[in-house]
């Protein structure tokens, strides 16, 4: 049963140079309790898809299509309806924990605010809940942290506070947008462990947006790969890594340096530059950089088609045959 169902979502931004489409005709669903990984490079639309779902698009952005949360469409919903969902039934974790916490509010109050607002808790109840949640995300000396300000905490601790905040109302889904990109590897490992624990023990569905395939490999159940505002491939995590069917997915995997195999010599690359969203090539947006491109690819855009019960790709080429 899908908790979040995105159907034919298109997000565009009005700019001085005309409208720019950041997300084009994206359909995705998040099942209860699963972890859905979204991979893509900068400008692929991976963040904007879910910013639209949270009603957090910049003022010049508009979303079309349907975003169904538990059956209710969030696009065009008023603030009141949105506020019953976000922070309450759907939490969000942003990349930069410093700029997403309020600098002048103590940690305890920031955490408790959610409970007071959504659950009508009293101040002391909220504080108690905040403390329990900080302990749950393994914040050392949790009691003392409640009376600290965000700048007094390290990056790793701030990100734990963000996770605690997202979890306060026991949401059904959490959207984690590059939750570990700003952190050091050893701290990243701690945070990923907490997310894994949240997913397994609280059965919370997690959308994990990242450019790091290693992070996806450790946590996701299903993966969607995005390029230039469209989904180019979807599948179960093992299938995507073991048998990528879109040339872009295959290229990304090949050019990710890894510690577990022999190395040396030149790295595999994807040639060319990432696309400019204002001047997307005709046909498949990836064709100028694609080793499998044929004439058809520059004329016609491949649709996302199912290739197996759990897999779909938007590509004319057959990577196995080539």
């Amino acid at each position: 049963m899908a908790i979040l169902d995105i159907r034919n979502l298109t997000v565009s931004f009005a700019t001085p140079d005309g409208a720019v489409s950041a997300v084009n005709d994206v359909s995705l669903s998040l099942q209860k309790g699963e972890c859905l990984g979204i991979v893509g490079e900068s400008g692929s639309g991976k963040s904007q898809t879910f910013m639209a779902a949270m009603g957090l698009l910049a003022t010049n952005g508009t979303a079309r299509g349907e975003i169904l949360f538990d059956g209710k469409n969030l696009i065009g919903a008023d603030e009141g309806t949105l506020n019953t969902v976000r922070g309450n039934r759907m939490g969000m974790i942003f990349q930069d924990p410093m700029t997403s916490l309020t600098p002048h509010m103590k940690i305890g109050r920031q955490l408790g605010e959610v409970m007071i607002r959504h659950r009508g808790a009293s101040i002391s109840q909220a504080r108690e809940q905040a403390l329990a949640m900080l302990k749950r995300v393994q914040v050392p000396e949790a009691e003392r942290r409640l009376d600290m300000y965000p700048h007094e905490l390290s990056g790793g601790l701030r990100q734990r506070v963000m996770i605690a905040m997202a979890l306060m109302c026991s949401p059904e889904a959490i959207i984690a947008d590059e939750p570990t990109t700003a952190l050091d590897v050893t701290v990243q490992a701690q945070i990923l462990d907490i997310l894994r624990d949240v997913k397994e023990r609280l059965n919370t569905a997690v959308v994990l947006i990242t450019h790091d395939l290693g992070v996806i490999a450790g946590l996701a159940d299903r993966v969607a790969v995005m390029y230039a505002g469209r989904i180019v491939e979807v599948g179960d995590v093992r299938g995507i890594f073991a048998d990528p069917q879109h040339p872009y997915t295959k290229g990304l995997l090949a050019c990710t340096p890894r510690l577990d195999d022999a190395c040396g010599g030149l790295m595999t690359t994807i040639s060319g530059q990432p696309p400019n969203l204002q001047r997307l090539p005709a046909g498949c947006a990836f064709h100028p950089r694609c080793g499998y491109a044929s004439e058809r690819c520059s004329a016609e855009r491949p649709a996302l088609e199912q290739t197996a019960p759990t897999r779909a790709k938007a590509c004319f080429a057959n990577l196995k045959a080539a």
Binding site: T186, D193, G214, G218, R238, L253, L259, D260
Partner: peptide, 27 residues
């Protein structure tokens, strides 16, 4: 050793099977 163990491997089977040496706290 801890740094290397913390780097995620882009392979779901290896990544999920590997031994976790997680350093506590921050530097």
């Amino acid at each position: 050793q801890a740094l290397m163990a913390a780097v995620p491997i882009p392979d779901p089977d290896k990544e999920r099977a590997k031994a976790r040496v997680i350093l506590s706290d921050d530097p």
